[in-house]
Design a protein around this nucleic acid. Sequence first.
DNA 1: ATGTAC
Length: 488
Amino acid sequence: MGNQSSHNIPLERIDANRWRIPTRFNEAMRVPGVVYADDELIQQIISDNALTQVANVATLPGIVGHSLGMPDIHWGYGFPVGGVAATDARDGVVSPGGIGFDINCGVRLLATDLLRDQIKGSVDNLADALFRALPSGVGGYGMRKLTSDEMRQVMLHGARWAVEEGYGLESDLEVTEENGCLAGAKPEAVSRKALERGIGQLGSLGSGNHFAEVQYVEHIYDKEAAKALGIGQIGQVVTTIHCGSRGFGHQIAEDYIKLAEAKQKEYGYELPDRQLACMPINSEGGQAYLGAMACAANFAWANRQLLMNGVREAFASVFGRKARAKDMPMVYDVCHNIAKIEEYEVDGELRQVCVHRKGATRAFPKGHPAIPEQYRAVGQPVLIPGDMGRYSFVLVGAQGSMEQSFGSCCHGAGRRQSRTAAKKSITSKELLSKLEARGVTVRVHSKNLLPEEAPSAYKDAQEVVNVVHNAGLAQLVARLKPIVVVKG
DNA sequence: ATGTAC
């Protein structure tokens, strides 16, 4: 059953942007699946088999509402990337595979007071400065080697630790999801192996789809919201950082997937795919996972704080001035691989649920108390990186996300080719010259991995964001185009 | 994503 092809899944069209997988597809499904896609994206999704995973997730003990797939959905470990699942916080489960290996992988956007024309003559210098400032590569060490006591402080306090150590400003924390620190961190639930892998990696970009990208505001959809977010000027230079918890979060995910797998019999779970292995939220294992997950989430926020500080310093060195917050204010930081306990109305009843967001961004609408005061009138910023050749997007959360998707929307373009397929389709050299021809300056640590990140390996992010906009999950604010890409 | 398998 776990390998049943998506081609056999009965899809019911709800409207132009929504499709339902009815529970009759598989008697183990406890709730229907709902997938967000237009006509073109749904074809890509069907050929990827990710719909089978949406149906599989619908069998999780305690799942409520729907098993959701965003338009950037694609095949992942057990759960699809681009998936959202909410389980009852009292008697439901938490599944490490529903968060993903890169715990609190996320996106941070930084504005500048520079215009595209003003940096034209300095693009190569800026690219070099950024590449020097941001350590990268698989297994790469970070800018800050921690003592074990410092590592503990990072796990407990996240981005706040980094700010107190001088890597940024108090105001940065106000525009970070959870203020850069998820409550409930339990350092004692983290293995020695995870600590060993993580302790030298703080302030590093890593590899794969992680990057820092200098961009300019190319199009504004919503003037009022763009202005409120501090990105209201066409041509304005901004920088996006996409990174997570490196080997630290990866090891924590691995540790708890193993633990969950070993305990499936004890819990009496029979799931269609062993990669869905899960634990009751209110069990020793479930609580330990959530405590360790919070440690990884906090490590990731500290990591992006150090990286952003590196970006500010690189700009300062090139443009000969201090990296003041006034010159480079942070717009926002969102995570897109995490589980959170939140409250929603489900079937007319207010319920505490554990929202698993795996490749999905929180998208709270205007007025929500979790949104920083300065953005409360427009909505929570939603940062959607596209691919390195085309464009990225800024949106704000909309009311529909609370009614339909447990306050969530998409997280990126989403893969349309596997890493292996991408590698076969283009060489690193071809790709670099294509990007250069488009006016994108690239600095890359691992050239051999670059083809995996080719724009052609990704869906069109414009189509993806159009779907969440039209479905009412979030609202388009601005489109950003790349100038400099620094890849791990 | 990832000391790309201990």
